[in-house]
């Protein structure tokens, strides 16, 4: 699984370069994200603009990242497509993980706190 990563203000923006975040790649995604947290990045923007499909395993890997960032850190999602937003709403995870329309809005929200 490939990622694009860049530092923006106090946050790291992580963009998976895949179109599916599912059970086949969820473990790899989770390990990669936990490594980023262990490197000391506590503000993470997850840019899902390339992702067309997320299943419960992919969702679980995102939740694992959010848990790994506690208590000081924060995860914000941006650029999620309609089908991905629908999964977050269905499972109520949109109430747990902030979802913003783009990277700029995600950074504004995180860095203003």
């Amino acid at each position: 699984m490939k990622f694009d990563e860049r530092q923006e203000l106090e946050a790291i923006v992580v963009k998976p370069l895949e179109n599916r975040l599912d059970s086949y790649v969820a473990d790899e995604f989770k390990v990669h994200m936990k490594n980023i947290v262990q490197e000391g990045h506590l503000q993470i923007v997850l840019d899902l603009s390339d992702i067309d499909f997320v299943d419960s395993s992919g969702l679980g890997a995102i939740i694992a990242t959010m848990i790994a960032l506690r208590p000081q850190g924060q995860l914000t999602i941006c650029n999620a497509k309609d089908s991905v937003v629908a999964l977050f709403r269905l499972t109520r995870m949109d109430r747990v993980i902030p979802m913003k329309s783009d990277v700029h809005e995600a950074l504004q929200t995180m860095c203003s706190k």
Partner: peptide, 25 residues
């Protein structure tokens, strides 16, 4: 069903949503 009001942030699980999703969809 997925809880509307009682999301327990301290004990949020990574898994266990698959069959609920199947039923909901």
């Amino acid at each position: 069903n997925f809880d509307c009001d009682d999301i327990d942030l301290e004990n949020l699980s990574e898994g266990g949503r698959g069959l609920k999703i199947v039923k909901s969809c």
